[in-house]
Design a protein around this nucleic acid. Structure first.
Lengths: 182, 182
DNA sequence: AGTTTTGTACAGTTTTTACTGTACAAACAA
DNA sequence: TTGTTTGTACAGTAAAAACTGTACAAAACT
């Protein structure tokens, strides 16, 4: 197996690079190493194989493979005759990026929108209420302008996520470089 | 000051929503609260005011205001006669999103690209080397295909970041909803 | 039915991160 | 110059997160 060390060194380098950047996905470097290992493994892997390969507990493998699945970076695979759960990395990284983007932001957008809508309603009542002091009314009006601004911002963000999910983003940033030169 | 509690309750709700979502920016909820407080404060704030307002140590305020500045969510302000450093939230949230996106991803893209390029070079040498065993050559060729795929992916991601930085993204996802209906 | 295998819940431990208080350098004031 | 003020480096502490090992339920096998 002449050349095996070079091959392993290369794989190790890529895996480590992934591990050190996966925090962008909100994952730990261990999960990154796990992902990288699966990436180079040509067959779907079992939890026990991961334990073996990474020298970590099976419990850890289980929890981080779940985290990877939640972000749609990894998917389950089936293979007849194999009783253990099998996992493999999703082969479409573009789609994985989109899924990640969507999962991460949709929730945040929704939470913000709800909270902003509710707040705007309350401020409107406050401004309309004759009992409210003039000073408070002034502040409330200012705050309403601020909230309307960020409401619009999140509405834009929502449409941005749409553009990824519908793949319209590929019209603007095509998959292959050539296409961009119109 | 009739209605003050309602106003405060509203502000508190928005601040808390920001705090609970700012982990998407890789920041702690404390930094989120700090950001939210500055957002509603109509004047630029000093570190001491933040300490006062949030009941946390000045050291903490200093470190997290730096984190907020690094992500371009907050900027320094000047006011004649004031010796202390003043900070305020950037008023263009769209630009802040773009800056964040760019800062976060550019570094990762660059690290990956470097590591992939280096690895592809080494694998090519390995494949060309007559001393390399056939089995290793086979693996190396497979790995090269994988690396070429992710090289293209990161190249796409790089162009995606470009599209944000150049504001071309607003052609696809316009600022105001109406424009979208062509 | 019983037996074995497999994934994960949970408690405990280790490691990391967030936060505080002190101390001090740099900038400013007198 | 000397005395203040201001931000942050640094060391220590508190809190949170990552990881492990045990224990067990669910599923698969006999």
């Amino acid at each position: 197996m002449e050349g095996k060390e070079t091959l392993d060194k290369v794989r190790e380098r890529i895996i480590e690079t992934i591990a050190q950047n996966i925090h962008l996905y909100g994952l730990t470097s261990s999960a990154g190493r796990q992902f990288g290992t699966m990436f180079f493994h040509n067959e779907p892997m079992t939890l026990d194989e991961m334990t073996e390969e990474l020298g970590m507990s099976k419990t850890s493998m289980s929890t981080s493979v779940r985290a990877l699945s939640d972000l749609k970076l990894v998917e389950r695979a089936w293979k007849r005759g194999v009783r253990k759960d099998l996992y493999q990395v999703k082969d479409d990284w573009y789609q994985s990026f989109i899924d990640l983007f969507s999962i991460k932001w949709r929730r945040s957008i929704s939470l913000h929108s709800t909270s902003i809508k509710k707040s705007l309603r309350e401020l409107q009542l406050l401004v309309n209420d004759p009992a409210t002091s003039e000073e408070v009314k002034e502040f409330a009006t200012q705050d309403m302008a601020k909230l309307e601004y960020i409401r619009d911002y999140f509405e834009w963000l929502d449409r941005l996520v749409d553009a990824f999910e519908t793949h319209e983003i590929f019209d603007l940033v095509p998959l292959t470089k050539d296409l961009k030169e119109k």
